[in-house]
């Protein structure tokens, strides 16, 4: 464990806490893409298959349980909670995430480290995580109204993966044989997808203006 990875995990945890707080306290999910939340639930469901078989550490198990619980409860809130679901923008949140899931599945069947069910599912979860933010970014472009909690959520989500890249560089430099191209490339793609959001987010923060994404 290194500081980059720990702060990455904490940033990731913060992002889901911010989102849950927003939905739970103001009972609204305006501006949040259900598609992205469903993709994240899928990411954790397919990545943490070994949660009860391969014990890594108490920290690892607790964090996995938290990510599984938060991602599925956010999806539940947005789909079934009688008040929250009313603020879900289903007309605007129309990204067909099946067109993201299928290519990721095919790619995971072709490009993986070992052709076993667990390994293919794990690789699949990496590819899905890389593109999971797309419906959310599309929704932000469309609705224009980025309330600051949603902005913070997306920012923290991007920052977590950026910190993970520093973690992989650190581990590559300090551990022999730490070479994981699939993880690195999908993590890099994921972070790059946030690049323009980061640009506009930091600019709006610096100029202290409301965050506006270009058309």
């Amino acid at each position: 464990m290194n500081i980059f990875r720990l702060s990455g995990d904490m940033t990731h945890l913060m992002s889901v806490i911010v989102l849950l707080l927003k939905i739970h306290t103001i009972k609204s999910c305006a501006g949040i893409s259900l598609k992205t939340q469903e993709l994240y639930a899928l990411v954790f469901a397919t990545r943490y298959l070994d949660i009860f078989t391969d014990f890594v550490s108490v920290y690892n198990t607790i964090m996995k349980l938290i990510f599984l619980a938060t991602s599925f409860s956010i999806v539940w809130y947005m789909r079934h909670h009688k008040i929250v679901r009313r603020s879900y923008d289903k007309e605007q949140d129309t990204f067909r995430h099946l067109f993201l899931i299928l290519p990721c599945l095919i790619l995971a069947l072709v490009v993986n480290e070992k052709f076993t069910f667990k390994e293919v599912m794990w690789t699949f979860s990496l590819y899905v995580e890389a593109v999971a933010i797309l419906p959310q970014l599309v929704l932000l472009q469309r609705t224009k109204n980025i309330d600051n909690l949603t902005g913070q959520y997306v920012f923290l989500l991007g920052a977590y993966r950026a910190l993970y890249i520093l973690n992989w560089i650190y581990r590559y430099l300090t551990e022999k044989h730490f070479v994981h191209w699939i993880t690195w490339i999908s993590g890099l793609v994921q972070t790059l997808l946030y690049a323009d959001f980061f640009y506009y987010y930091i600019n709006s923060w610096k100029n202290n203006v409301r965050l506006q994404l270009p058309a």
Binding site: R5, D9, H12, D50, D54, V56, S57, N60, M63, K64, F67, W122, Y164, N167, R171, E175, H177, F178, H180, T183
Partner: peptide
């Protein structure tokens, strides 16, 4: 079994 190093990540 030892988990593959990158698999100990979240």
């Amino acid at each position: 079994q030892t988990t593959d190093s990158v698999k100990d990540e979240l």
